[in-house]
Design a protein around this nucleic acid. Structure first.
Lengths: 152, 152
DNA sequence: ATAATATATGTTATGTTATAACATTGCAAT
DNA sequence: ATTGCAATGTTATAACATAACATATATTAT
């Protein structure tokens, strides 16, 4: 899997700023810091690792609620997703394009990739309908090895 | 969603006993107790709820590792699955029939249902192949409302 | 039968992940 | 200026999970 370039990262941050501006969402300093930490990491990141980084950036200890509240804001607005299988967070590279997001997560290099193709979405939707089930949210996390890592 | 009948529960427990016998897996007293607690609950159950029940059954306090080790054994052998999105455990009603297991989880009544149809499995597999990705394990948890609960 | 080995469990402590509850701040609207 | 509200700070603790080492129980080889 390819990691993101600096320009992609910048674009991603800029996009979030624009979306917040046009939707009147309060992208405060902390929320912006947390988002930047997450997208710059470019791999799934844990809440307490974000906490450490935030504390360093601001030269004063932050506390868990600060980080979790920022994460909540970012998730609510589709800028970040949580990977339940590894209790970690990742940036979303096409926020607002979808509500659900499916992931491939490489166990070796830890890089993740979104894989939200429509045929998969359709299939999940059909499965739900077939079971008379109304979906509110879906967790699909595929763990394994990416091409690079399975060749090594 | 329908909940399981007593006979289905008994059959499930018996099946696990048989599988363990024929595969020489040590289904110890505690492992059996934990499995029974999980299947009898018939809804996703938390580790510390199992811990309480185990302590009651045996009239002495048990400790987290005891429960988590039993759960590990049951998961390894496909008798139980973990729902990562809600940190809970559920019994598997057709162990050994599949490695991966997909779930529908009703947020209201909390009943869950396996939904491991082949077309879904195929679709996930194709998505992985398309991304040159080798799957080791998949988490698919669909949360929402079952028929009964969405009609209320 | 007995010692050696492996498997499982008990026990204590602690690590990791997440939230409750309430105080404080900063800013906007009246 | 005061009220209201959204965001943050702060303290404490809840909820989830494992490390490490001791003890017991079962299995096997002698």
């Amino acid at each position: 899997m390819k990691s993101k370039s600096t320009s992609e990262l910048k674009a991603s941050i800029h996009r979030v700023e624009e979306i917040c501006k046009s939707n009147k969402l309060g992208l405060t300093e902390i929320r912006k810091q947390v988002f930047e930490i997450i997208v710059k990491k470019n791999k799934p990141i844990k809440a307490y690792e974000i906490l450490d980084k935030i504390s360093n950036i601001n030269n004063k200890p932050s506390h868990p609620p600060t980080v979790y509240r920022a994460i909540d804001f970012l998730i609510e607005n589709g800028f970040v997703h949580k990977l339940n299988s590894i209790n970690s967070f990742v940036g979303c590279f096409h926020p607002k394009a979808h509500k659900e997001c499916y992931f491939l997560i490489c166990k070796k290099c830890n890089i993740y990739q979104e894989c939200c193709d429509d045929s998969l979405k359709d299939r999940i939707s059909k499965t739900a309908i077939h079971n008379n089930f109304v979906i509110s949210n879906t967790t699909l996390e595929i763990e394994g090895h990416c091409l690079d890592c399975s060749q090594k």
